[in-house]
Structure formats: C-alpha cells, structure tokens
Write a protein that binds this DNA or RNA. Structure first.
Lengths: 236, 236
DNA sequence: AAGTGGTCTAGACCACATT
DNA sequence: ATGTGGTCTAGACCACTTC
C-alpha cells in the first residue's frame, strides 16, 4: 500500500476512534513527517484526503484541526461509499429483482448521445423492479452497449449487474455522473412500487463509467420515496 | 494565480472549447512540463482536478484522454457549482423571501449536537419561504449560533443570508454536508409552496461550515418537487 | 520574527501497458 | 525494452497567522 494511503487510513481511524476530539489541534505536518518517516508532500496528500472527507480542516499559518462534526455525521463517514447498484449496501438486506423487460434494441438518439455510441449501435434495454426484503424500493431502466457488456442473461439480472460486470467481465467501475429530481409517480410506477398514483418518487438519471473512461451504463431509477436518500458534500 | 490552477483552467477551457475531441489522447504530462515550463508534480496536480471534474481520464502506462462525456454533461460542467443559498443561481431570476419566523431560541439537543454548541447556547430560528420570480420554490428552516452571526436583521433575511455572512461579516463559507430525501408535503408546506397536501417535496438537511471548520448553519429545506434537482459525481 | 500550511522543483524509483 | 502515469523525496520559497 502507498504511504499516503496508509497515513490517510491510519489518521482516519485515529480520528474516528476518538483519539483526537472536536476542534483539537492535530500534530503539525512537520512533526508527522518525522513520526511517519516521510516527506511533507506525502503527509499533505494524506491530509488532503481527510479534508475531502470533511474530517479535518487546515489553516495556513496556524495548524490542522479536527472538524467539529457531530456523531451522526461520524456514522455516515464510517459507513461511507454510496456507490452500488443497490445490491450489497447492507449485507443484512436481501435484494431481489423482478424483470419487466430484457431486450436488445437500437439505441435512440438520446441513448446514443449519453453513451457516446456510433450510429446504429444496439443496447440492452433492461427494466427491473428491485426489492429489499420483499419491499419494492426502486424501478430501474438501464441501457448498456451490447458490445461492451457481453454474455448478459436473466440470471445476472436477478442478482447484481455490477457484480457481473466487475467479477465476471473484470471491468473496473470508476464513477457515475448522477442527476436527481423529484416528481409524482405514474400509474405504472405506483403499481410496481406499491404506491398510489401521485405519491412522491425520486428519479436518478445516471451515466456510469469504467476506469478507462468508457460510458457503459445510462440509467433511470425511480425510487419509492420512503427508500431514497443521498448524501454528499458540496464545496464552494 | 498558482501555476497548477492556471494550467487547470487553461486545459479546461481548451477542452470545453473543443480543442480536443472525445476519446482523443492528450499531450503527455512529460511534454506539458515543457510547454507549460513546469514540473511533473504540478502538471499532475492540475490534471487531477480535471479528473475530479470528470473531464479526463488517465491510464497509467498509456496516456491521458478526454472522457467521452456528452454535450448535456458539458453544459453542466460549464455551469458548475451548486453551492448557493439559492440566491443568484441565475442572475435572470428574481429571488424574494417571505419571513415566517425570526426568533432567538435556546438550542435543543439536536441543534446543539449538529452545530457542536456548548450547552445553553442560543441560536437564530429562521423560517422563510423563498420565491423565484414569484413562484414559491422552497421553505427554509435555518438555525445559526447568535454569537457567530452577529447583527442579523430582517432586511438580511429578505435578501441573501449568505451574502450578508460573506460580504458583511467577512466569513468564508467552505462546504456543506447535505443529506437529501423525499416525502409528502404536510399541510403547512403545501400551503406555503402552493401544493396539495401529499404532493412530493425534496427535503435537504444540511450543516454548513466556514473555512475555519466552524459549523455555522444547520438547516432543513423543503423544496417544491418541480424546482429541485441535484447533480453530483459518485466515485467508487 | 517565527512558525504554519501551500506551492513548486528536479530527479529518483515504481507499477503498468504496449511493442 | 520503452514509455506512460504514480509515488516519494529533500529542500526551496511563498502566503498567512500569531506573537
């Protein structure tokens, strides 16, 4: 493991374990260079990750301090990582799927643009309802290029698409650009999510990328209002 | 301006202006060191910002490439920056406020924890409806420590709180930890947002921080479902 | 004046992909 | 074997805060 990641993890654990309390000053970078036997740039890199996490703040000319986040925030930071195709958020929960549609269709112009496809490409057209412990929580409409995600079948859809992509196809999923909005459930959505027509749903539109930069998934998820939340840190 | 920021901005403009097209290889870091007359670390720092923005991807052993984002994403990246207390998102829009409540109250235990206050602290208790071009879009319930945000009055609330904090009090707002969920509008919310009871609303709970790490605002915003959307990039 | 974190360098070595 | 980006160093200088 890289030095800066080791230092980052180590400091993170020390902070979350309460070794330093809120607003307390951390050791100076200079001193940590000595105790971690490293250079200033490396300490800085580790600390910048902690700043990104919202765990610490640095003041030039003064020092570095624990951010006064509260215990609820702490939990969030300990859990962390919102990235998942839903599956395996919490190992206690049982995720199942009902497949509404599983076709191969020509990409329309929107899909073509979103996935940067060449004209006349084909994509999977997947429509699933996903259940957490039997409760319908989200309807997913997914488009993926057939030449990228090969050999997909219904069994994979019953389980985790992402797992198939990562473990069987050996692609690395890197990031997703997500846009969230809110609206009323349509009749079809209401039926599938066990809601009334007009009840709230959260709609997430997303383009997901491999670590090689290829867009591999364009999807819409319509979430039951009781089973959606997102956390993120906004910076100026 | 710092060198790495200059290079970052310069490359960003060149990319957004279409100097390089999707999937095209960028010049190697090594070569850019020469053309920008700088060191590898500095180029890397600039490029890492572009990676964060989701504009480029780097492949070790291969090179650096423009990400194949589509034009809709491009627009988003050009606009960028979601941070605002609502005011001045778009200069064309006229933001007004109706003040429902403006009191000073003792912090309850939740507020105390969220803002990391000492026991028996007082906070502003501000309740506003905010209008965009006359259309009610969001109800904001805001708590702020009185000893941090001094001299607040109704005039400031009519306009932008954040503007007062930054321009009059000269604090620097750095980041906000935000949690978003969805539910049905209560009767009071429905009235204020010109909705029906049970219509969808997006609820954002947020703790905002100064650049010195102090939590200065704990707020709940209840958004009209037609006037809420959020964009963010999720990474693994 | 002294000490902090921020930037930058020039160069070393490493991990990885391609040829 | 070559060349890419990734990490790391030791030290320089800068911007900022505090004393």
């Amino acid at each position: 493991m890289q030095k800066y990641l080791f230092i980052y993890n180590d400091m993170k654990n020390r902070i979350l374990n309460g070794e330093f309390v809120a607003n307390e000053k951390l050791p100076f970078e200079k001193d940590l260079c000595i105790s971690y036997n490293t250079s200033k740039m490396t300490i800085k890199k580790a600390f910048d990750l902690l700043v990104e996490d919202g765990l610490i703040i640095k003041k030039r000319g003064v020092g570095t301090f624990i951010k006064d986040i509260n215990s609820k925030e702490m939990e969030r930071l300990i859990v962390t990582s919102q990235f998942q195709g839903l599956t395996s958020t919490n190992p206690k929960n049982k995720i199942t799927s009902k497949i509404l549609k599983f076709n191969i269709i020509p990409a329309d112009s929107d899909i073509e643009r979103q996935l940067n496809l060449t004209p006349d490409s084909f994509v999977y057209d997947i429509h699933r309802v996903r259940y957490t412990n039997g409760q319908p929580t989200v309807i997913e409409q997914t488009y993926m290029p057939i030449d990228l995600i090969v050999g997909l079948n219904k069994t994979h859809l019953k389980n985790s698409l992402y797992k198939y992509i990562e473990e069987e196809l050996n692609y690395k999923i890197q990031s997703a650009h997500r846009r969230v909005s809110v609206r009323k459930a349509t009749e079809e959505e209401a039926q599938n999510l066990e809601l009334q027509v007009g009840d709230p749903v959260a709609v997430a539109e997303q383009v997901a990328y491999f670590d090689n930069g290829r867009a591999f998934e364009y999807s819409f998820s319509v979430h039951h209002y009781n089973f959606y939340s997102a956390q993120f840190i906004v910076t100026k």
